[in-house]
Nucleic acid binder design. Structure first.
Ligand SMILES: [Mn+2]
Ligand SMILES: [Mn+2]
Ligand SMILES: [Zn+2]
Ligand SMILES: [Zn+2]
Lengths: 154, 154
DNA sequence: ATCATTATTGATACCATATATCAGTTAAAC
DNA sequence: GTTTAACTGATATATGGTATCAATAATGAT
């Protein structure tokens, strides 16, 4: 499964700034151990739209618990995005430093990212409308990607 | 856990139009059996933000499989909304006929609904920007509701 | 370098949410 | 009423993930 990075931004076309996973953990007091280096390596290799299982498959000699723990730490630290497919199954992807959202192909699973100033303005306006204190949001778009759309669905 | 319906819409304050669950299933060729009537009854009683387990608890004599199957059918038919809490745990709520989104209190789990014309316009404009064919989206806001915010968190 | 301290690992058990199987039951159609 | 197809629910299985805990590795003094 190939994963590409597309920036649909209407405001900027700069390449994504990716977090340094090891540094992010180190900065929070986590030790950069061998198993964690292996997990980080696999994440950087798999890029967008990997799963916990795809990491475990690629790291037979690293314990499942360590893989899941490292994912959890990286999520807490903000270095990974957790995505939810329409059926509820989770996927992860390398975060970028700037706030962004995702598109996911429901056929091949390809994850792409986008920023959109209109949406961000709209989100801020909604947050002003909602009386409760907003502590987060989730917004994902499900697509049939260009490749899946042309090749037919198989 | 109390659940209220708040319509934060900037365009309309009409009460939510709820789908007729039995009719929705019947229209798709499903039989309206005793166990399904019981599940539907429990769903209508529990309202916003129930879980599969909360239905099973309320319906000791209906099989778990039947509860889950009925939820699945109602989701397929569009009569239920499936929500994902920040930790990934699912919740369900009675759909309303009109397209809408949800807020969920991360403290007490209360689910509310809203419509917002600005967001819908922004979504349409994004959908024009994204080259892939959009087949769906998910947008949820996580809040600390007014009640939890005043009573302190316990 | 050595030792003491502490974090980390990974095998295992377990949990939550949900689906697959399938023999038995119910409801619909004839 | 009989046939037929849908449905049920006990049980097994799948998936994604956490809890435990003895063994190990990294750290930070001495
Ligand atoms: Mn991302
Ligand atoms: Mn809803
Ligand atoms: Zn695709
Ligand atoms: Zn609350």
């Amino acid at each position: 499964m190939v994963s590409i990075m597309i920036d649909y931004s209407m405001t900027s076309q700069q390449p994504a700034v990716r977090p340094n996973l090891a540094a992010a953990l180190e900065d929070r007091g986590f030790r950069i151990t061998r198993p964690r280096q292996r997990v980080i390596g696999a994440i950087e290799e798999q890029g967008e739209g990997f799963t916990a299982e795809s990491l475990c498959d690629a790291l037979q000699d690293v314990g499942r618990a360590t893989v899941y723990r490292t994912i959890r730490h990286l999520l807490e630290v903000g270095s990974l995005c957790k995505l939810i497919m329409p059926d509820g199954t989770p996927k992860y992807s390398l975060a970028r430093v700037e706030h962004h959202h995702h598109t996911m192909c429901i056929n091949c699973g390809t994850v792409s990212e986008f920023r959109d100033s209109t949406i961000e303005r709209a989100l801020r306006s909604i947050e002003r409308e909602i009386p409760d204190e907003i502590v987060g949001h989730r917004m994902e778009f499900y697509v049939v990607c260009a490749a899946c759309s042309t090749h037919g669905s198989r």
